[in-house]
């Protein structure tokens, strides 16, 4: 059975490219959200296997969203920005880890999942 994914990111172009790439790699994208609040709602409603979560959201940060949902679903934080501290901070917020958007792939997500 395909791993289900929710993509939370405020950039439409990224969501559509990530969706296409993940689906080509055998994932099932079950939903998309453009900000933190609707991301939390969608995560609770759709209960995906993993949430691909942008770090910089219009209303909050990915770390805060991860704290709100990490007990219920696996979270992978992503960003265009990259910083060596992001992976440790992502894990402290309850996420499985961090992957830079430029390095994003199905394999990169699977490596982080428990």
């Amino acid at each position: 059975m395909a791993t289900t994914v929710l993509i939370v990111d405020d950039h439409n172009a990224f969501r559509s490219r990530a969706k296409r790439m993940l689906e080509a790699e055998g994932f099932e994208v079950v939903g998309e959200a453009a900000d933190g609040a609707s991301g939390v709602d969608a995560a609770k409603r759709l209960a995906p296997d993993v949430v691909l979560l942008d770090l910089q959201l219009p209303d909050t940060t990915g770390f805060d969203v991860a704290r709100a949902i990490a007990g219920e679903t696996a979270v992978v934080i992503t960003s265009t920005r990259d910083d060596e501290e992001y992976d440790a901070r992502a894990r402290r917020s309850g996420a499985c880890g961090f992957v830079s958007k430029a390095e994003l792939s199905g394999a990169a997500i699977e490596e982080l999942l428990p």
Binding site: H11, A13, F14, R17, A18, R20, M21, A24, E25, Q56, T80, R81, K101, A102, E103, L104, S105
Partner: peptide
């Protein structure tokens, strides 16, 4: 840079990765 060129370059990377796969 983050909202503009970087987003396009990230999109480019994802597109090229998919192209290589296909």
């Amino acid at each position: 840079l983050h909202d503009g060129a970087q987003q396009h370059l990230v999109g480019l990377a994802l597109t090229l990765r998919l192209a290589r796969r296909k």
